[in-house]
Design a protein around this nucleic acid. Structure first.
Length: 582
DNA sequence: GCCGTTTTCGGCCCGACTGTTTTCAGTCG
C-alpha cells in the first residue's frame, strides 16, 4: 500500500492520484515531456500541502497562487474537488488502455517500450506479457533483446512493485546491517545513508548509499555480493542498484572525496530541492551536478555540502528542510528557522509501565529517563476499555498516583514522575474514566483506539467532544495510522487543532517508529494553528524511550523550534502550561 | 502546462547504466 504524504487530506490525495495518472498516460502518448512534468510537479506539491484543497476553495483562495499551478491545473483541481473526477483523465484513459499503465509499473519498462509491447505484440495483460516472454517473442522486437526478455520474466516472477515505501522501523535495521557490512570490507572511507532516510522522512522508498573509497569498482562488487541481495538491477564502475531479499531497493554510488559534498547534496535530495537549487545556480551562470559547482569548465565548489550552498550564496541547509517547501527562499533572506534539537527535550509525556501493557516497572522507566537526563517523565498507562492492555480502573489509577507521590518523595534529584493516564476516547467522544478521577492527575493524554473508520464529521465531533472534558491535556496519535498497516482515520485535523488551541490543550507527535503520528505535515499544521506539540515516545519499555528522536526529526521537518514544543519546556514552566485555560 | 528584473514565447536540472547498437535511445534516480 503506497503511502501518500497527503494522507490526512483526501481531496489532495485524489488530485495527486489523478494528476499522476494523467502524467503516466500522457507520457505513453509521447506528449510534450514538460507538460507531463507540470502534472507531476503539481501532484507532488499538492501532497506536501498543509491544507486540503477543498478547504482552500471553501475559503475562496486562489489556487493559481500555488507554485506550479496555473489557470488550467487550478480548474482541474476545482473539478476534482467538486466532482471527484476529471474529464481530461476520462479522455486520456480511452486513448490509452489500462494495461499499458500496468506495464509501466514494471522496472525497466517506460512509456516507449510499454507502448511497443502493446502495439507490436498486442499485449493486454501481465499474464500475456509473461507468455510472450516465455515464447521468446519479446526478443524479436526492435529495441529489445534476449536479456530484456529474461529480465522481464524475472521481474514478473518476483512481482516487483516499484512504488512501495517502508516505515523507518523496517528501513533502519536494514540500513544499519548494510552499513556494517560495507564498513567491514575495509574498502570504505566515508559512508552516508542519504536520500529520504537522511532527510528523516517517515517512510523511505529505497536506501541511497553514498561512499568514498579508493577502489571504487571493488566497493560496487562488494555490495553486489552482499548475502541479502536478491536481484542485481545494475552495476557500473561508480554506481549500482540491487534489490534486497526483503524487497527494499538499495542504490549505491561511489565518488571521489573531493566531490563528496556535491554528491551528498545530490543523493540526499529531495529531487524538488535539487531542481530548485540548480535553477538558482543557473540564474548565477553556474551549473550544479553531483561532481561539483561549475562556472563554465571551472569547478568552484563540491568538497563539502556547505561549499556547494555557499557557491550559490546560501548557508548550509539541514537535510530535514530539503523539500522545496520554501527553505531556499528562507536561506536567501537569512530566515532559516532555528530548529529543535534533541538536547532541547526535557522529558517524555507519554509512557507505559507494567501496570498496563508496558514491560517495566515505574522505577525501571524512571531510571532510564534519568540516564537520558530528563527532568520529568509522565506515566500514562491505559484506561480499562482496551481490555488487552490490562488498563487501569479508577481504583488502580488512584493507587498508582499514590505510588508516584511516594516515588517522587523518595527520589530527590531524579526525574519527577508526573501522574497521568492515556484515557480512551469512546465512540461518542466521552472518556473512559470519570472527570472526578482525572482531576487528580497532572495531565490527561487522550486517544482513540477503536472505530477508526467513522465518517469524517462523526470522527471530528467525537474528538472535539473529548477535548471539552475539563481535564483533557494532550491528544495522542491523532490520526491513528500504523505505517503500512492502517491508514490515517478520516478526521478534519485543522478543525481539531483549532479547537485544541482554543482550549489550551496540546497535540502529540508520537515517535513510535510504526506510528510517527503526527508526522511532519501534521506538525506544520499544528504550528500554523499555534498549538504546541508534545513529542512523545509512547514507550512500553525502557529501550522504547530512545525512540523519541524519531519524533524530533518529524518536528524538525515541520520547521519546529524549541518554542513550539511542549516538552522542550523545563518542569517549572511545563506545569502551568498543563493547567487548562478554559 | 508553467513561467517571466533579458522574455507573453521559448525555454524548462543533470548525468549514469543497460542493452542493443555501430553512435544512441530508453530508463532511472
Amino acid at each position: 500500500m503506497p503511502l501518500a504524504a497527503s494522507y490526512q487530506y483526501p481531496a489532495n490525495q485524489a488530485i495527486a492520484a489523478i494528476f499522476n495518472e494523467i502524467a503516466d498516460l500522457l507520457e505513453v502518448e509521447e506528449a510534450n515531456p514538460f507538460r507531463v512534468r507540470a502534472y507531476r510537479n503539481a501532484a507532488r506539491m499538492v501532497e506536501g500541502m498543509t491544507e486540503g484543497v477543498d478547504a482552500m476553495l471553501a475559503r475562496g483562495a486562489d489556487l493559481t497562487a500555488l507554485p506550479g499551478v496555473g489557470v488550467d491545473l487550478s480548474a482541474k483541481m476545482r473539478e476534482i474537488v467538486e466532482t471527484g473526477s476529471c474529464a481530461m483523465l476520462t479522455r486520456v484513459r480511452t486513448e490509452v488502455p489500462s494495461y499499458v499503465l500496468q506495464l509501466l509499473q514494471l522496472p525497466g519498462l517506460g512509456p516507449k517500450r510499454a507502448r511497443a509491447l502493446q502495439h507490436e505484440l498486442g499485449i493486454t495483460s501481465l499474464d500475456e506479457l509473461a507468455r510472450a516472454a516465455a515464447a521468446h517473442r519479446i526478443r524479436e522486437l526492435h529495441g529489445f533483446g534476449a536479456r530484456s526478455e529474461l529480465r522481464l520474466l524475472e521481474t514478473l516472477k518476483a512481482r516487483l512493485a516499484r512504488d512501495r515505501r517502508y516505515g523507518l522501523a523496517t528501513a533502519k535495521p536494514c540500513a544499519d546491517a548494510l552499513t556494517h557490512y560495507l564498513l567491514a570490507s575495509g574498502l570504505v572511507d566515508q559512508l552516508v545513508v542519504a536520500g529520504s532516510y537522511r532527510r528523516g522522512r517517515d517512510t523511505v522508498g529505497d536506501l541511497d548509499l553514498l561512499i568514498t573509497g579508493r577502489k571504487r569498482a571493488q566497493i560496487v562488487e562488494h555490495l553486489v555480493h552482499y548475502n541479502e541481495v536478491a536481484t542485481r538491477i545494475s552495476a557500473g564502475p561508480t554506481r549500482a542498484s540491487v534489490v534486497l531479499k526483503n524487497g527494499m531497493q538499495v542504490d549505491l554510488r561511489v565518488v571521489r572525496p573531493d566531490a563528496f559534498g556535491a554528491a551528498l547534496v545530490y543523493s540526499t535530495g529531495s529531487k524538488a530541492h535539487n531542481i530548485a537549487l540548480r535553477k538558482l545556480a543557473q540564474t548565477q551562470g553556474l551549473k550544479i551536478n553531483e561532481y561539483g559547482v561549475f562556472r563554465g569548465k571551472e569547478r568552484i565548489a563540491g568538497q563539502t555540502e556547505a561549499s556547494v550552498y555557499r557557491a550559490v550564496g546560501l548557508p548550509w541547509i539541514c537535510p530535514e528542510l530539503r523539500e522545496d517547501h520554501g527553505e531556499i527562499a528562507a536561506a536567501q533572506s537569512g530566515l532559516l528557522p532555528s530548529l529543535l534539537e534533541q538536547s532541547d527535550i526535557k522529558g517524555d509525556l507519554h509512557v507505559h509501565t507494567s501496570a498496563s501493557d508496558g514491560t517495566a516497572s515505574l522505577e525501571a522507566m524512571a531510571a532510564q529517563a534519568r540516564l537520558l537526563g530528563y527532568q520529568y517523565l509522565a506515566v500514562t498507562d491505559h484506561s480499562p476499555r482496551i481490555a488487552v492492555t490490562h488498563g487501569l480502573t479508577a481504583d488502580r489509577l488512584a493507587a498508582q498516583a499514590d505510588a508516584i507521590d511516594r516515588f517522587n518523595a523518595e527520589h530527590k534529584g531524579w526525574p519527577v514522575l508526573l501522574k497521568g493516564v492515556e484515557v480512551d476516547i469512546l465512540e461518542d467522544g466521552s472518556l473512559d474514566l470519570p472527570d472526578s478521577v482525572l482531576g487528580r492527575l497532572d495531565l490527561v493524554v487522550g486517544a482513540i483506539h477503536s472505530h477508526f473508520s467513522l465518517p469524517v464529521d462523526q470522527q471530528t465531533s467525537r474528538i472535539l467532544r473529548a477535548l471539552d472534558h475539563p481535564h483533557f491535556s494532550i491528544l495522542a496519535h491523532p490520526l491513528g495510522r500504523l505505517i503500512g498497516e492502517r491508514n490515517a482515520c478520516n478526521v478534519d485535523l485543522k478543525r481539531v487543532l483549532t479547537a485544541i488551541a482554543q482550549r489550551g490543550c496540546y497535540v502529540e507527535a508520537n515517535a513510535q517508529p510504526t506510528r510517527l503520528d503526527l508526522s511532519d505535515i501534521g506538525c506544520r499544521l499544528a504550528k500554523a494553528e499555534g498549538v504546541l506539540v508534545s513529542i512523545a515516545s509512547d514507550a512500553h519499555s525502557p529501550a522504547d524511550l530512545m525512540n523519541l528522536p524519531l519524533g524530533v526529526t518529524q518536528a524538525r521537518r515541520a520547521w519546529l523550534g524549541q518554542a513550539d514544543v511542549l516538552n522542550a519546556h523545563a518542569l517549572d514552566t511545563l506545569l502551568p502550561l498543563l493547567k487548562r485555560t478554559m
